[in-house]
Amino acid sequence: MGFKAASYELGQPVGEMGNPARRGPHRRLPPDGVNEAVLALLRPKPDLSQLEGEPADVLAAAQAAVDAPDGLGTIASYVTEVALPATGTWSNPGKGGAQADIVITSPEDGVPLLFVELDNCYESAQVIAAKIDKYVRFCQRKVKDVDGKERPMWRTRWWVPDGRHGDGPHPPLLLVFNRVGPRNPNTSPAR
């Protein structure tokens, strides 16, 4: 029901709203972790007039948030748990594809398309590398578009300006490490 309500408010089809964040045996990232990442990237500005009478430390933190640089896009720029099929279709993805924790489209901020993968430091560097490989397979996949021309599958869903980014090599992937689990995130890139 939440997706239907969001679909109505944002004026987008339900099928483009993504999927609910979920937890599984290899996904130790609760939905709150995805929400926190969205808020950190979005960087909403508090309304200081709503904070009258609050303690000085709350007002100082709110003022710091107002003075901080703007974030990326609006809440409509974010979709969570998006299947990126290496096989199958958008509506019925096959095995071997990625599942983006967040997809951001904010061309007004110079970010036409960004995939975000979150890790709470429970997954090994090898598991993260395997996920990156799935993103690469998806980005390299070509399909015939509605005009009959073959192009990367991701270009059939998202618009990216021609020129500097074009079709190659692929949209960027942002890895976000949240220091919750036992692994030190600073050791992952080297591995």
Rank of each mutant, 00 (worst) to 15 (best):
V160M: 08
P172K: 00
V143W: 12
T156R: 04
Q140Y: 00
K142S: 06
W159Q: 06
K144W: 15
D133W: 04
G168S: 12
W159T: 10
D162C: 07
F138K: 01
V160N: 08
P169S: 09
L173S: 03
P152Q: 06
W158Q: 06
C139L: 04
R151E: 12
Q140A: 05
C139M: 15
D162M: 09
A129D: 05
L114T: 12
L175M: 09
C121S: 06
V136W: 12
V160C: 03
R137M: 10
L114R: 06
G148E: 15
I128C: 01
G166C: 08
P172I: 04
D162A: 13
P172H: 06
Q126V: 04
P172V: 00
P161D: 10
H165F: 05
C139S: 14
M153Y: 14
R157N: 09
R155V: 11
K134Q: 08
W154K: 13
Q126Y: 05
A125S: 10
R164C: 13
L174G: 03
D167H: 07
R151G: 02
R164M: 12
V146P: 00
N120R: 08
S124R: 08
K144C: 10
G166Y: 13
D133I: 07
V127P: 08
C121L: 05
G163A: 14
H170N: 01
V176I: 08
R137S: 11
K142R: 15
L174S: 02
G148C: 13
K142T: 15
D133F: 09
L113M: 04
D162P: 14
F177Y: 07
K131S: 02
W159Y: 14
W158E: 05
L118K: 02
R137V: 04
W154H: 15
V146G: 07
F177Q: 02
C121T: 09
P172M: 00
R155T: 14
P161W: 01
V136I: 11
N120Y: 01
R137A: 12
Q126K: 03
R137I: 03
I128V: 08
D119V: 03
V160I: 07
R141F: 01
A125Y: 02
G168W: 11
W158G: 08
R137D: 05
W159F: 13
K131V: 00
D145I: 12
V160E: 03
Q140F: 06
D162L: 13
V116Y: 01
